[in-house]
Simulated scan of single mutants.
Amino acid sequence: MRHPMPAGIPEPVTPAERSDPSGMDRFIAGIEWIAAAFVGLVAADIFVSVLLRYFFSVSIPDGYDVGRMLLGILIFWGIAATSYRGAHITVDLVWELAGTTMKRVIDVFATLVLLFVVTVQTIMLFDKVAQTYVQNVLTYDLQWPTWPFFAVAWLGDVSAVILIAVRTFRLVAAPERVNEAHSLEPVE
């Protein structure tokens, strides 16, 4: 038995009610899996580095450089994953007091501002990738080029722009589809 939702909050969608995911929904899920993989990779890097230092007094060559670049990659892919879902930190005081139509207007406006900011950030990050490539910046120990790490981070930012654009479109055209994959199951 479903309990009625408060006014302005859409009913949760059960798995049985969901249609087959579209290509865009699979793309969104793929971005989230990539972000999760980078979380695991950074955690493994930190764990192995600490283990080797503590027990064997050995450090991974370029462990610091690679670790900080992986952390940067994680941040940008994390931005992509949270931007579509709206799972980032928000201040909802005005939104909570607004009516349904005004909530939608606020959501669309906030998402457009986020889209602008992340697009500018993506352009600037591409400039950083290009500069790093041209300047042939290398890691300290192994002399690896650093631009591929920056490029992977940039791809995370590009993914964020795409997902924010999709979120904006869905907020305008089909707001019930924005978070349907993360809808809560009704409490019995």
Rank of each mutant, 00 (worst) to 15 (best):
A87G: 00
A16Q: 15
T82V: 15
L41I: 13
L171T: 01
I28H: 06
V113C: 00
L125E: 04
G30R: 15
H88C: 09
A7D: 04
I123H: 03
T111Q: 05
V187W: 04
A151C: 14
K128I: 14
D107N: 10
E185T: 07
E11Q: 00
V91G: 06
L155S: 13
S83R: 09
H182R: 13
W95R: 03
D141K: 07
V39E: 01
D92G: 06
A160G: 11
T101P: 08
V137S: 07
D62Y: 12
V178N: 00
A16M: 09
R26W: 11
D20W: 10
L70D: 05
V134Q: 14
I46P: 06
F109I: 02
A110N: 07
A174W: 13
A44P: 13
V118C: 01
T101H: 15
R26Q: 06
A35K: 10
W144K: 01
V166R: 02
I34Q: 08
Y140H: 14
L142V: 14
P148C: 07
F76K: 08
V50G: 02
L93F: 06
L74S: 07
F149W: 07
S59F: 09
W147E: 04
A151R: 14
R53Q: 09
T111L: 02
L155V: 14
V50F: 05
G8W: 05
P6I: 02
A80N: 01
L52M: 13
L97Y: 06
V152D: 04
T82K: 07
F149K: 03
V166H: 00
E188P: 11
A80K: 01
G23N: 09
E11D: 06
V117C: 04
S19G: 15
S183C: 15
W147H: 00
R2P: 11
R85I: 14
T111N: 03
D20S: 12
W144P: 02
S159P: 08
A29E: 14
A174R: 15
R53A: 01
T101G: 12
P148H: 07
R104D: 01
V120A: 09
Y84P: 14
W95I: 02
N136V: 14
V91K: 05
D45W: 12
S19Y: 10
V152H: 08
R2C: 12
A173V: 06
V158N: 04
I123M: 04
I79N: 02
L138T: 07
I9H: 05
G40S: 07
A173P: 10
A174H: 15
G86W: 08
V178A: 10
D45S: 10
A87S: 04
I164V: 13
A110P: 06
G99R: 03
S83N: 14
F47L: 11
F126W: 09
G156I: 00
W33C: 09
L51R: 08
A44K: 08
E176W: 13
A35T: 11
M1F: 14
G30W: 12
L184Y: 12
G63K: 04
T122M: 15
L51H: 08
